[in-house]
Design a protein around this nucleic acid. Structure first.
Lengths: 260, 260
DNA sequence: CAACAAATGATTGACTTCAATCATATAGAG
DNA sequence: CTCTATATGATTGAAGTCAATCATTTGTTG
């Protein structure tokens, strides 16, 4: 029996709400909640999936709650080996009891995952990256601090004046920072707000460690972050000769290589 | 063929890691990744589920990544009607363009869900509650600010000095605050840190609106939040006579009732 | 009001998942 | 070294899920 369009729309948005609340629901429960047959529930789900509003599974569906992180996780999966190497090198710098800053970006996420595996005792982790909390929030014996700030649309990152001010009040032993690109002039990033925050973090950090994989080589971005002479530590899956070929000459000791 | 215990444990923790990274995985992909048969993958999953480390679905499993919110969502489901009424009343106070604070707790979560349905234009939402970001983070035309602070273990709430300082720098039109209990002496909450933050918020808020459902009546908690004479607005699913019977007498206009 | 398009539920057969059972190999205890 | 408990993969029948199809009802359009 045909039903008003409005009713259909209402049911579908109710469905997404339900999934948002519960995370996951099997079809059986969905049609019970919505008072429709399985066929209709399935049809609704396939429509919503084609609009990327939910994720379909066999026997049920997932709410959008992970959609924020989905693109993130997908980006993370690209170049896993390189990021894993970088992450392992980065984690080798982290000693028990120190205070570590991790910024936004997939490299920081890779470092966080590596930390889950090899966790030094008594760390303090500071970040502006909400996605990291999903992995790091529940680590035992670790203090996790989130900078405040404004949530960036469609991303899980906090930025703005408040983030900068909050950063200026932190005590950081090592900061792990990412960038969108590197060329002979130095490191580049996409947004002024990001750079402002990174500079505030660098001021407070005993050591600032830039982490980039080779896909960033030769790229630039709208905003200049830092010139090479001021870079003290670079963790990268490139060798010194490869960097020199791109016009980047580093003082000895600046480039850290994975020992594995 | 029996296999060393160590191997089993390693595989299971790798499994949880995988689910943590990907959110959801079907069994077929799990046994491919782990290099085991479906039978073993299923056995691992049922073990991990009994330890509450994952959530099983028909045909796959969910990572713990939403486990932080699972208990939250479960608590939310208790007394849904009452919380829904309270939320609707609260949302009716929110006009377009104002700045709203939502604190931790399931009532604030219910308000957030209601906001998804009836969203005034141009809101600024301020919170220390990470779980809210899952629902409010992607609202169009809304600015979302998160207070900084230390992440509370096993909860998605930010507290501490930094949160208090961040709150002191906000401009808030209406603050919606919860509490653990109410009796004739006023409102009570469980932790000193929470109360410190709530008081900082109240100082900056043009209007502070306390939201409690009837299950809180007669309960106390370790810390005293506020006495009744200082409460300007209470949103509650109790009537004035019911409150008076519990020894709570309010000035007229303080109690807001749902009109539905 | 008439004709059409759209939404729904029921049914069916193909496919998938699942729990239980069993044989086998082997880690770990004594 | 011997024995046993345990981990594993294969098999199987039951149960569940799915997409496609069809008849029916009913908004919606002209």
């Amino acid at each position: 029996m045909r039903v008003p369009r409005q009713v259909v729309e209402a049911r579908r948005s109710r469905l997404t709400e339900l999934l948002l609340e519960r995370g996951y629901l099997p079809i059986s429960e969905l049609c019970e909640q919505l008072g429709v047959s399985e066929a209709t529930a399935r049809r609704d789900l396939s429509v919503l999936q084609s609009e990327d509003r939910i994720t379909r599974t066999y026997g049920g569906a997932l709410g959008e709650f992970n959609a924020t992180f989905t693109s993130f996780r997908e980006r993370l999966r690209e170049g896993t080996e390189a990021k894993g190497l970088i992450a392992r090198t980065a984690v080798s710098l982290i000693k028990p009891g120190i205070s570590v800053y991790l910024d936004a970006g997939t490299t920081a996420f890779a470092i966080a995952q590596e930390l889950r595996r090899h966790l030094p005792e008594g760390l303090t982790i500071i970040t502006n990256n909400l996605a990291l909390l999903e992995t790091l929030g529940s680590l035992p014996g670790t203090k996790t601090t989130l900078l405040g700030g404004q949530l960036l649309e469609r991303q899980s990152v906090l930025l703005g004046d408040e983030a900068v001010q909050a950063a200026a009040a932190q005590e950081i032993d090592i900061a792990f920072l990412g960038a969108q690109g590197m060329n002979e002039q130095g490191l580049w990033n996409s947004q002024h707000d990001i750079i402002r925050l990174q500079q505030a973090v660098m001021k407070r950090a005993g050591r600032s460690c830039f982490c980039l994989d080779r896909s960033k080589l030769g790229r630039t971005a709208p905003e200049h972050l830092i010139a090479w002479p001021r870079v003290r530590t670079l963790v990268c899956d490139l060798s010194l000769p490869e960097l020199r070929q791109a016009g980047i000459t580093l003082k000895p000791g600046v480039l850290l290589h994975n020992q594995s």
